[in-house]
Design a protein around this nucleic acid. Structure first.
Lengths: 337, 337
DNA sequence: CTGAAAGCGCTAACAG
DNA sequence: CTGTTAGCGCTTTCAG
């Protein structure tokens, strides 16, 4: 009395004792082990009463599983923080893993800081990982090989990395963009593209090029850069300088489109009267622009859910059910066409 | 031979044996316990050689610590995924916790789904938490009380929740916005505000109102809504309808400002000739707009680092060094003023 | 179906 | 400074 008691968490022992059974019985009753209905009920009742919360570390230590999934994003900080695709994807992944009773653990590291990634992957005790990356280094390959637990990619990895993945049908998006612009009567079509060391911009471009080819056209310019509005602005100015008659732009991101429209307004060009613009992403900015941006919506939530399901299945069944799933983009029509 | 060996991870025992010392000695040598320089070197060398990775669960079980920090964001999914402040903040937090060798664990739940949050907080075995929320329910209060581990808020919580926090000086931002617009010669100034159930928009508004009052003015309108461009667009139209002479707008977010500018362009109003616009956030859209948006940059990285440091200190020393830190916003001048 | 007992891998007293 | 000895809380054989 009067002593300060160290507040000890209630353990399965306490539950067992109060329920009048052995610890092992309590464990089985709480889990899925064999136990009589009666025992099961009694034990669970007591556990509830005592507000028993199983110790994760102990469980992990014996069972060998942690239920932790690492979300690995080995990208430049600057890129990561500003890219709506990446940050949105992270949120959606965390959300769907939580839904499936996994614990999402966020491993953000520099693209070449494989040592950190290695450490994080190990220290977290993750049972598996989702990798969200666009730049594939030797270090990343080695790190993942060493991790040696079920791993899935968001976005198709290079062919020499034989990992399961979910991806967006970028090629088809590009193709559809071309069709759309051609239907609209446009003929002098420029592409302002994302980084050419990433697969999806390459696919968007080839889709568009092929779509144009089907109409006997080819792009009057393909201007490569990053996904920012600054790139869009700069590229648009260059394209206008080269060919003032340009009448359409397929931009690889909404941000790029925004920058392009900024340049156009400075040059007195009107959208959509003088030029049509089609973007990619359907993030916030697409709606904020004036006129609204016609664009292709990326299925972030679906990507996350699909990845979660694939990984969950792999973890439960020991093998992959499917090793790749490609999801379509959705055309969102707004005033810029 | 020919048998498939279950791949057993190397444990500290293996290291100890190979180094010719006791397990406890190895443990001390690897950690910060007392050990001769010689032993320490030898053990670490062997550990390296054997590629030893300490088992997180076991460590946690004995030490009682996990090094896991929960990043709790009890907000509507829809809000979370679209809000650049929230998603940027999450990334920055994950980043700075990683820097300090903590493991950031992402707990995203619905605002009223306190049961999930509770479960996540427990199951993750987190040593502490950062809460990033703007809507404070009874359920959240109870959940955190039950969590009962060091917890820090991003953004000042309501007064009845006596938690340490880091925050942005929203009031001052609002005040400065007012000064700026008045200096620019503006007199008919409207505020398009964020949600009034959040503290920071309230502060931005009162700062601005007070700043105007100092010049003998008051806002011609205060239009409350969410942070989206849709709100900005709608509000701007209403304000123009009520008072076509409006000559300045203080928008509580860059998105709001974007929407407002969209409405203005439809009404043939020019920025900055006819009206000045000041935003808040300095996210991507601020640069993508045309003209560029004058706005107040939020110190996301500083907020994250400060929170990390405060929590790390608390975890190490058993008490808070400071219980609140408020960081200034930075004026970014662009063409919209 | 249930109880006893043996660890999982590590850290933290406690002696030496 | 180092080795021995106990556990941390739980799951999982192994007998009964």
């Amino acid at each position: 009395m009067g002593e300060i008691m160290a507040e000890r968490a209630v353990t399965i022992r306490d539950v067992a004792k109060k329920a009048g059974v052995a610890v092992s019985t309590a464990s089985r009753a709480l889990g899925n082990g064999p136990a009589s209905l009666e025992t099961r009920q009694k034990v669970r009742e007591v556990a509830q009463e005592l507000n028993f919360v199983p110790n994760q570390a102990a469980r992990q230590l014996t069972s060998g599983r942690s239920n932790i999934i690492a979300i690995a994003v080995p990208e430049r900080t600057q890129f990561l923080f500003n890219d709506a695709f990446v940050s949105g994807m992270i949120s959606h992944l965390a959300d769907s893993f939580t839904q499936k009773t996994f614990l999402p653990f966020l491993a953000l590291t520099g693209p070449h800081d494989t040592e950190s990634l290695n450490k994080l992957l190990h220290d977290s005790g993750a049972d598996g990982a989702v990798v969200l990356s666009f730049h594939y280094s030797k270090g990343l390959v080695d790190t993942l090989a060493q991790f040696d637990k079920p791993t899935i990619f968001i976005g198709q990895p290079p062919h020499h990395m034989n990992y399961p993945y979910v991806d967006v049908d970028s090629f088809h998006g590009g193709y559809e963009a071309a069709e759309l612009l051609v239907q609209r009567g446009r003929r002098r079509i420029a592409i302002i593209a994302g980084p050419d060391d990433m697969l999806s911009p390459q696919q968007r471009t080839s889709g568009c090029v092929e779509g144009l080819a089907a109409a006997g056209l080819e792009p009057i310019a393909i201007n490569v850069g990053d996904f920012t509005s600054a790139h869009g602005y700069q590229a648009m100015k260059e394209i206008l300088a080269d060919d003032p008659q340009v009448d359409a732009v397929f931009a690889h991101s909404d941000q790029i489109a925004a920058g392009a429209m900024q340049a156009l307004s400075q040059y007195g060009k009107r959208v959509p009267q003088d030029l049509s613009i089609v973007g990619f992403d359907d993030f916030h900015v697409a709606r904020a622009l004036s006129p609204g941006l016609t664009t292709f919506a990326q299925p972030l939530a679906d990507l996350a859910e699909t990845a979660t399901e694939m990984l969950a299945w792999r973890l439960r069944h020991g093998e992959w059910k499917t090793t790749a799933q490609v999801l379509p983009v959705t055309l969102i029509l707004r005033g810029s066409l």
